[in-house]
């Protein structure tokens, strides 16, 4: 645990996990995202902020091709995961999503036991060879999601029976269990009460030691608390990006400043 600080300091040095260049997203004739260029660093939390409808969630969903499920949605430009274009014809989005996991706004545990929820990813991706390994993965994932101690005695109880905050941490454990390289979180705390929010935020901070985390939030305080990098979206444009401290204390763009001071949003 004592190497936490080195990780924190190393943020600026790690290379980008995801690089997006000139990304445009269209819903039919309407353009939702205009020419976004951004690098997502490894082992750090990147926050996307902006008023609602600014395109931050849409852009997040392009990073693991969740937009593929919407028939009228088109993505232009390139998004590279470790140098490989994820919109390449040869890429199977299913295989991609094993590397770029996602956690959603509303906790959505499957109507299965806690164990089966977490084991779902490893099972479908065939990550384990036997039951003992699977048990190990489930335990590790629940530990990483800071849920192990609360549920270790009732692994076979239904996941839907947990409290809201526990459910969201279960969903995080479920996403972590496939050992993704990048973890996308779409407003993971918006459906939670303040205490659960604090627990999940603490968890996010811990997760960056293993993963590259991208979080969409409408709460500037949350972005300031958990992220190292922040990107501000407005009306489909990526207005400004940089270190979180810089964005919040010394924004360069007047729109960012207006948002941060509460004049738009």
């Amino acid at each position: 645990m004592n190497d936490m600080r080195t990780v924190e300091r190393a943020v600026d040095n790690t290379e980008a996990r995801i690089t997006a260049r000139d990304v445009q997203v269209w819903y039919g004739e309407a353009q939702a995202i205009r020419d976004v260029n951004i690098d997502i660093p490894d082992k750090a939390v990147t926050a996307f902020i902006g008023p609602s409808g600014c395109g931050k969630s849409t852009f997040l969903r392009t990073l693991n091709r969740m937009n593929d499920t919407i028939p009228i949605c088109r993505v232009l430009g390139t998004i590279e995961l470790e140098g490989e274009n994820i919109y390449d014809k040869r890429v199977d989005p299913v295989q991609l999503r094993a590397k770029v996991g996602m956690v959603f706004q509303k906790p959505n545990p499957f109507p299965k036991s806690i164990y089966d929820n977490v084991a779902y990813g490893p099972r479908i991706h065939g990550l384990t060879r036997n039951r003992a390994e699977l048990d190990e993965v489930v335990e590790q994932s629940l530990r990483k999601a800071a849920l192990w101690n609360e549920v270790k005695d009732r692994l076979h109880a239904p996941g839907t029976g947990l409290s809201g905050g526990q459910q969201q941490r279960l969903c995080i454990a479920r996403a972590v269990a496939t050992s993704p390289e990048v973890l996308l979180m779409d407003e993971p705390c918006s459906a939670l009460d303040p205490i659960a929010t604090a627990q999940v935020e603490e968890l996010i901070d811990e997760l960056r030691s293993n993963f590259s985390v991208v979080i969409v939030t409408h709460s500037m305080q949350q972005a300031a608390r958990v992220s190292q990098k922040t990107a501000f979206f407005h009306l489909g444009n990526l207005v400004e990006q940089g270190d979180t401290s810089q964005i919040f204390t010394n924004p360069k763009d007047p729109r960012t400043e207006a948002y941060i001071t509460g004049r738009i949003g």
């Binding site: 040869r90 299913v94 490893p122 699977l134 993965v137 269990a177 050992s179």
Partner: peptide, 22 residues
């Protein structure tokens, strides 16, 4: 060597398992 560590293959090449799943 944590079990469950995915094989870090390229996403441009479908793994055997992926082909079977498809």
């Amino acid at each position: 060597t944590l079990p469950g560590e995915p094989k870090r293959g390229s996403i441009l090449v479908a793994s055997d398992r992926m082909r079977r799943r498809n």
